[in-house]
């Protein structure tokens, strides 16, 4: 399965220029893609388009699977992508397990199966000791690993990460990246980052230049 953006154009309301002017990129399941570029270049906008949270003015985003080009029906970018943001998007008063279980419950519709999967994913990000701790009591790096575990538990084939280490120190960033690129699941990962070390950890690196995607 691959997530493909083709010739995407986006202009925000009241903006004078298009932020994306024919941007194209793709990521395969099991592959990691880093998108770099200066602030305001449209990195996060492209990520939003890939995840189906921003509708492009032109161009398209497709999920391509095996022999068929494009999958119709319920399979939309929104339904195959999970998010990891720079800011800590968690239910702060709820435990790590609760946070991860919500995603797993959407996936399985069964609390037992969801709990089992949530515990597996928390173990994968080395948080099995903290499953019942409210996330507000965890460190920034731990919270980001909870978010990665939640993305894994969603079972979605692509993880979109917007500056996932932007608020973390170097050592913690390394650890979070270790977890993110070694989930053990065959997921495709798209990471928007300013950090060259983070980009270096990815299989493919591209840059946004003048609203278009160019290889590094």
């Amino acid at each position: 399965m691959r997530l493909v953006a083709s010739d995407v154009r986006v202009r925000y309301p009241r903006a004078r220029h298009e932020v994306l002017r024919g941007a194209s990129c793709e990521v395969l399941q099991g592959q990691s893609l880093a998108i770099v570029g200066p602030s305001g270049s449209g990195k996060s906008t492209l990520l939003g388009v890939l995840g189906g949270l921003i509708s492009p003015d032109a161009g398209q985003v497709e999920i391509q699977d095996g022999h068929a080009r494009g999958i119709s029906g319920n399979v939309r970018p929104r339904n195959v992508t999970a998010w990891v943001f720079q800011t800590m998007n968690v239910l702060a008063e709820r435990s790590a397990l609760d946070n991860v279980m919500v995603a797993a419950l959407v996936r399985f519709g069964n609390r037992e199966a969801a709990r089992e999967e949530a515990l597996r994913c928390l173990d994968a990000v080395e948080l099995s000791e903290h499953t019942l701790v409210p996330t507000r009591a965890l460190s920034g790096g731990q919270v980001q690993r909870v978010v990665i575990a939640r993305a894994m538990a969603s079972g979605r084939p692509f993880i979109l990460a917007d500056e996932p280490t932007g608020q973390l120190d170097r050592a913690t960033s390394q650890r979070v990246m270790d977890v993110l690129v070694n989930t053990g699941d065959p997921v495709g990962i798209v990471i928007v980052t300013h950090d060259p070390d983070v980009a270096e950890r990815c299989d493919v690196r591209v840059r946004i230049d003048d609203g278009r995607v160019v290889p590094l």
Binding site: M1, N74, V75, N79, V80, L105, V106, R107, F108, G109, S154, G155, R156, P157, D185, P186, V187
Partner: peptide
Amino acid sequence: MRHTHGTERWR
């Protein structure tokens, strides 16, 4: 890994 694309399992 089993991929789920819908949200219909949420009750």
